[in-house]
Amino acid sequence: MPEPSGITEILGIPTDIIGLWVAALLTLAIYSFLYGDNPVYKFAEHLFVGVSAAYGAAIVYHQALVPKLVQPLSAGLIQPLLAGNPAAIVWSKATLLIPGMLGLLIFGRFFRGYQWLSRWPIAFVMGLGAGLSIPRSIQSLILEQMHGTMQPVWPLTGGGFDNLLLIVGVVCTLAYFYFSLPHRGVMRWLSRIGIWFLMIGFGAGFGNTVMARISLLIGRIEFLLYEWLPTIGIHLGGPGIG
């Protein structure tokens, strides 16, 4: 099929302007939820679900299934066989039949009595992920973090105090999560300080999350004010004038 990339206008209206209007109306449709649940919001919500699922499926098809399975199998195995030239078969590509078969076994879930077949690919992927994560977690989440924590603390000026605070924070946070000893005496104070550090961490996480959402909100409002409104003749100035 030919690529429809040449289309630049529909009914005399540039596709860029149509896109701008579609994006603006959908943005307003989602914000209509602030007033209450309504049909316009539900429409936009379900549109989002459908489009997102199809986006994921198409990307996986083009960036995983075709280049990693279909093309190599076709070039290395199927085409030589169809051409009646088995000498041209690239046997290393034939190993791709294994993940292909394992992938197909997943569909065993759809057939009564054969559901157990879907365990094979799931067990394979889970085992792979588990084996992959053990050394990498130890390396990146334990050893590297310990290395980053154990920095020189002397002299206290010039970063030493910060490094000391980091060590104290990590030790106290770990003390809070250490339940093999009762939290009494020294442990009580260590875990108490650990809670303070945790609260600072949670507060920082909350503040960052809120600001990330606010940043998205500002982006959408800027889009409406400075890109969409100018298309109906309202120019407010500011950044990103379309």
Partner: peptide
């Protein structure tokens, strides 16, 4: 960069141990 990172590291140690334990159970 300092107090929040300290808290995060404390949590990450626990997360790592959890990942290793769960992965071993799966294997």
């Amino acid at each position: 960069s300092i107090p929040a990172t300290a808290a995060k590291r404390g949590i990450l140690f626990g997360v790592a141990l959890g990942i290793v334990a769960t992965s071993l159970r799966i294997l």
